[in-house]
Design a protein around this nucleic acid. Structure first.
Lengths: 150, 150
DNA sequence: ATATTAAAGGATAAAAAGGTCTTTTAATAA
DNA sequence: TTATTAAAAGACCTTTTTATCCTTTAATAT
């Protein structure tokens, strides 16, 4: 459903929202190390995210990545659409080119409500809101290994 | 979530259940043509499915693929596990290596009920039962294009 | 100003997934 | 028993995805 690339992008953007700020920018390496993602790959993804204004960066000493208030208003759907492309998000679970209520695949009516729910959340919650919820609920953002001490 | 290969395998097995029988075997080409799947690729998948006794085949004139009563008792999960491997089915939506109630990814509690529902169905319904339901509900099995006339 | 730091950019490599083709084997109809 | 048919087997090829590396550019601390 989601490519590994967009999973990385989502997790690291949420991580940025939680741990970085204009005053405390984070380097690719630090983030990649924290959430356990290959850093050169993440660097590429971040280039893309900066270009489309989902995250921000500055170069040089004390440079790094962070979110502006504008960035914080973006959504997870924005990330997915940027990385995976608009079209792929809503693909039929069984691969039918045209799958809808009139033309349902064998699991359409099970998958539909789930999609509605998760993409609704991804669309309606800002990154900031999402990150706050993640923090409040103690959700996990690192792919593997043990949590890094704060 | 599912590879294209296992999507093809599921759709074509359901198609077999509905349209083929010991008396009326179907060739790869016929099936591939009907559901709009590349036939050499489907041929490879069918080899695998025959080996693990999910579908059956005979060679020669009037040969082809069909389901025995034993085959009909297999499940969609059996197909997925054979094609994609046991492990991949239940992967975390956001790619966490270890994602569960104690260690939830940010969308765990949305994804969990969906997985429970769809994999429950895939596990508990036999291919035969599933195919009958598909037929009763008029679900679509062809990937693209128009339905072939019977 | 200059050295240093960290992102940007571009080129490439490795791996996985998806897809094709040709030869061999086995069943059967004639 | 032979020609024919259709699957089995195995070798390839292509595209996409994932991942790495090296050079350039731009901040900034000194």
């Amino acid at each position: 459903m989601l490519s590994r690339a967009s999973k990385y992008a989502i997790l690291s953007t949420l991580y940025l929202a939680e741990h970085a700020s204009k005053e405390k920018k984070m380097s690719v390496k630090a983030i990649a190390g924290s959430i356990n993602v290959p850093s050169p790959f993440l660097a590429k993804l971040f280039q893309q995210l900066v270009k489309c204004n989902i995250i921000s960066s500055t170069k040089g000493p004390n440079g790094g990545f962070f979110l502006t208030e504008e960035n914080e208003k973006k959504t997870v759907i924005d990330i997915i659409e940027e990385i995976d492309g608009t079209n792929k998000i809503d693909d039929c679970f069984l691969g039918l080119a045209k799958c809808d209520g009139n033309n349902p695949c064998p699991v359409h009516f099970i998958v539909e409500p789930f999609k509605r729910k998760i993409f609704g959340k991804f669309r309606d919650q800002t990154i900031k809101e999402f990150a706050d919820e993640v923090e409040a609920q103690g959700s996990v953002l690192f792919l593997s290994g043990l949590e890094k001490k704060k």
